[in-house]
Simulated scan of single mutants.
Amino acid sequence: MSYLCPLCQQPLSLTERTYKCASNHQFDVAKEGYVNLLPVQHKRSKDPGDNKEMMQARRQFLNGGHYQPMRDAVSDLLRGLISKEDSTQLLDIGCGEGYYTSYFDAQMANTKVIGLDISKIAIRYAAKRYPACDFLVASSQRLPFADDQLDAVVRIYAPCNGEELQRTVKSGGVVVTVTPGPRHLYRLKEGIYSEVKLHDVAVEDLPGFALEAEHSVAYPMTLNSDDATTLLQMTPFAWRAPETLWQTLKDTTAFDCEADFTLRVYRKNA
């Protein structure tokens, strides 16, 4: 796998277990198999991204299969979009501990799947558990890939620099995004807000891309106490949740709520 140096944007070459550019910037491959391409000057904090507790909570919830219908729908989309004959490269931005990345890798022949996240803790776990994939610590705002290198990018809840997608995705390549649908986790929100509004699903403006398709994946979930509490911890509105809601989730044996996702396919203009 070829990358660009995050410091000078020159190509990195791999010798034994060290990536090096013409300016002699060096990045070692960790014992788990990943490479850290997030230099300290590009960090906004000492350890950006999910911490160990957040990563473990998300891993527990995802391993319970609660988002499997969405994962499978995304995988089916990608398999229909990516060539089965030619060798292709798929980037999973914001891959976390590799739950989605590893599944895409197992489902798609002739495709090199790369997982990228700013959380070193999550990437270390992902690389150790899923050695068939390439994982790297890097910023989605400065993708360490050459121009027109990627055939496809998937972003599940992950932010990214649209201009970087335009630069790195090949002409005719695709970006698949997953965002919350209108009724996603509506029941949880009822325990937080006096008036719940349906989630806005505005179409993202990606420079150089056109929206090609949109799909909805919605289904009911019944969660036990641990998974319901973990789900709330994973949401951006957890800090606003009152103690009464936390206690309700801790005491429940079956919490019913809705999963609602919007999947969009953007294709880069020729």
Rank of each mutant, 00 (worst) to 15 (best):
L150F: 04
L136C: 13
D147Q: 10
A152I: 08
E164Y: 13
E164R: 09
D134Q: 07
A146L: 11
I114N: 00
A122I: 01
S119A: 07
L143D: 11
V113P: 01
V154T: 09
R142M: 15
N161W: 09
S140F: 12
V153R: 02
A127W: 04
D151W: 00
P131V: 10
E163W: 15
V153I: 06
L136T: 07
L143P: 10
D134M: 07
K120Y: 10
C160S: 14
K112C: 04
F145H: 04
D148F: 11
E163L: 15
R155M: 14
A146D: 08
L136F: 09
C133N: 06
V137H: 13
N161M: 14
F135V: 09
D117N: 00
L143W: 05
Y157H: 15
A138D: 10
Q141A: 15
E164P: 13
V153F: 02
A122G: 06
A158T: 09
Y157W: 13
V137D: 13
L165G: 11
L150N: 02
R155F: 06
R129L: 07
A132Q: 05
Y130T: 02
V154F: 02
D134R: 08
E163N: 14
Q141F: 15
K112D: 04
V137R: 14
F135R: 06
Q149G: 08
A158P: 10
D147R: 08
V137N: 13
E164G: 12
K112Y: 00
A152D: 03
Q149L: 12
P159A: 10
V153L: 02
L150R: 00
A126K: 07
F145A: 05
I118F: 06
Y130L: 03
R124N: 13
A132P: 01
Y157S: 13
V153S: 03
C160F: 12
I114C: 02
D148L: 11
D117Y: 01
A122L: 01
A138G: 12
S139A: 09
S119D: 04
I118N: 06
A132W: 00
C133T: 00
